[in-house]
Design a protein around this nucleic acid. Structure first.
Lengths: 136, 136
DNA sequence: AATAAAAGTGAGAATGATTATCATTATTAG
DNA sequence: CTAATAATGATAATCATTCTCACTTTTATT
């Protein structure tokens, strides 16, 4: 796969972009099959990888040992639920100074190209469940 | 496993603490076998999970679909090589203000309990390799 | 110590996400 | 049109992790 996306790849990309959660390969497969019924799971994996390589989408990996995909390629941060593992986009920008980042990068010796802040805590849904449990 | 660590668990904990990289379960298994030759892989997994639960160690998950373990439980940040996947500790503290974190947490609705900054870029080793390639 | 309940163990089977294989089918180039 | 090339999808293979279960060790109680 070079540059132009074929019908399968376009369908996969559309699906990942349309999803507001971060779908797994299997979820993408199920959704794309509705539109392109012949597509195979192996092709979905192949296409997802090539879309990542071409920077159309990003790969996220988290605790439930499945890869998830993100159609929002602009740099942004994530909140991760320590209870259920949900991975939420942080919709605001956290203004870290270039200085801070560079100082940290220098300390490790890496050539900094990007960064991501991860916030850990209970997500609203799990927070709610917890409260209900305490009331019983 | 309740509170006191038995000999197997202590050996696993010692190994994870002694390691300066972030060992996988399999690496822990190999290292611990030297000292406790009859320990099984299943036990290593079981012990690692309980050590995480008891907050003796932390679990890190990254791109090479293996869990890694970290004996340094105090909050710290990581640098991740985009080339080889190496996961390095950031040895300095990056002073994010409580305000910034709370604002972001509010925007997602989570009850913030911790955070982690991830820096992405080429690690020193991969950087070096790249330079040598260009010189040839 | 004697004994019973509880906890921990390890070998191997099972699981499940991801990759590799490979013959077949589109697509492109000449 | 035909040859070369890329993409496809069914299926098998891989590999980290988890499960199962009979067995051993530890603990608590007399």
């Amino acid at each position: 796969m070079k540059e132009k996306l074929n019908a399968n790849a376009q369908a996969v990309l559309d699906m990942v972009r349309a999803a507001n959660n971060h779908p797994t390969a299997s979820e993408v497969y199920d959704a794309v099959k509705v539109v392109r019924s012949h597509i195979g799971l192996a092709s979905v994996y192949r296409i997802l990888h090539s879309l990542v390589e071409q920077k159309y989408i990003k790969e996220l990996r988290h605790s439930d040992d499945t890869c998830r995909y993100d159609g929002h390629i602009s740099r942004h941060d994530h909140a991760i639920c320590t209870e259920c593992g949900a991975l939420l986009d942080v919709p605001v920008d956290i203004p870290l100074t270039q200085e801070m980042l560079e100082q940290a990068a220098r300390a490790t010796g890496i050539e900094l190209s990007s960064h991501e802040l991860r916030l850990y805590g209970r997500c609203p849904a799990c927070s709610q469940k917890q409260k209900q449990l305490l009331q019983v």
